[in-house]
């Protein structure tokens, strides 16, 4: 799955990822995130914030309640913004295209 093209231009895409790093789709997802895209980590995917072996894309966010459940917070990775459900809704509104992995 890659960014879709409309009239030769790619649509900025929001990628929703809920699989842990060990899941094959986790890697597939990271490979599909283009420069103008954003990545939102949720459920088991949020442990990626603590995974020293990973380099996450620049526009990565994570769902706060899933982080708090797992003992992760803003200090785990300073350049990743934690958002709540309202933030997630706003984010999905901003992107013309959403892919759930």
């Amino acid at each position: 799955m890659t960014s879709s093209a409309v009239n030769g231009k790619t649509l900025p895409t929001l990628h929703l990822l809920n699989k842990p790093p060990s899941h094959p789709r986790f890697r597939d997802c990271l490979g599909a995130v283009a420069n103008e895209d954003s990545l939102l980590l949720m459920e088991s995917a949020v442990i990626a914030l603590a995974d020293a072996t990973l380099a996450l894309p620049a526009n990565t966010r994570a769902l706060r309640h899933d982080c708090l459940a797992r003992g992760l917070d803003e200090d785990t990775q300073e350049d990743v913004e934690l958002i709540d459900i309202r933030g997630m809704v706003e984010l999905t509104d901003r992107f013309p295209r959403v892919v759930s992995w």
């Binding site: 060990s22 708090l68 459940a69 797992r70 003992g71």
Partner: peptide, 22 residues
Amino acid sequence: GEGVNWLRPGQDGASINQKTVS
């Protein structure tokens, strides 16, 4: 592997309506 995340301090299962596994 990813199982060590069971052992992370400061977990709060209540934020997702679950019991805290640690």
